[in-house]
Design a protein around this nucleic acid. Structure first.
Lengths: 132, 132
DNA sequence: CCGCATCCTACCGGATACTG
DNA sequence: CAGTATCCGGTAGGATGCGG
């Protein structure tokens, strides 16, 4: 079975890290998934993943259906997390632009992986007798 | 720039899917991250990712610090999602074993990707005056 | 040993109205 | 335009105790 092989490799990868490092990394992953698991975060990042242009508050507010309250919160979380850069121009009317950081760009391929997984597998949310 | 290249590829990948399919896939990813973002879920799956043996309720209850209530909930969510199989043996004392499904095994490499990302990048949880 | 039932609290996220 | 302020219902998840 090459499941075992993959597992082996994962294990090796993992053991190359010192226990302290390993914990730090695992905490990071948890923190990341914690963030990604919040409402709209993925949808938000998807917008940025496929946009060439920086995006503005009201653009996002429209294209996703999300209350300004929550949008504001999510955006600042993502900025704090270092996944988005926020640039505000002091004009009238005010203009604020968000763009993904390199760190976020590095993350997008990982989404690709999840995306690929999702093409073939789904979580069984609907208890019908459909898959496999 | 090969960021653009990656983005290009992602875009292509994405456009090969019909709009309907695309939405289904994106919903799946969201559902997945929704689940993974919940408390303890990642820690739980990590246990299974590195275990050769099936795991039992009380093992998990100890190795992670999690109330039986929540553990039970998470486990059944994962079972419902088709990521874990639950096998209960009618013995005395009762024995229940959980093991990852193939679908979960297919997911673990994606974790590897996130793991690798986390080795080099962290979310900036400690924001001081270090940017700009 | 496994894990559900119950209770209880904290926080999340939506709606709406308002300000620089 | 880009948010903040306020209110409020829903739910997540910890603690505890009991049942199979």
């Amino acid at each position: 079975m090459d499941e075992s092989l993959e597992k082996e490799e994962a294990r090796k990868q993992r053991e190359q890290l010192s226990p302290a490092e390993r914990e730090r990394v695992e905490d990071r992953v948890s923190a990341l998934l914690d963030l990604l698991g919040k409402a709209h975060t993925m949808a938000l990042l998807r917008e940025f993943a496929f946009a060439e242009e920086p995006l503005r508050f009201s653009e996002l507010e429209e294209s996703l259906e999300i209350s300004p309250n929550t949008l504001s919160l999510r955006l600042s979380e993502l900025v704090d997390a270092g996944l988005l850069d926020r640039e505000s121009y002091d004009e009238i009317p005010p203009r604020v632009e968000y763009r993904p950081t390199e760190r976020a760009e590095d993350l997008f391929p990982a989404f690709g992986h999840l995306h690929r997984w999702a093409v073939e597998h789904a979580l069984e949310v609907s208890p019908k007798s459909e898959q496999e």
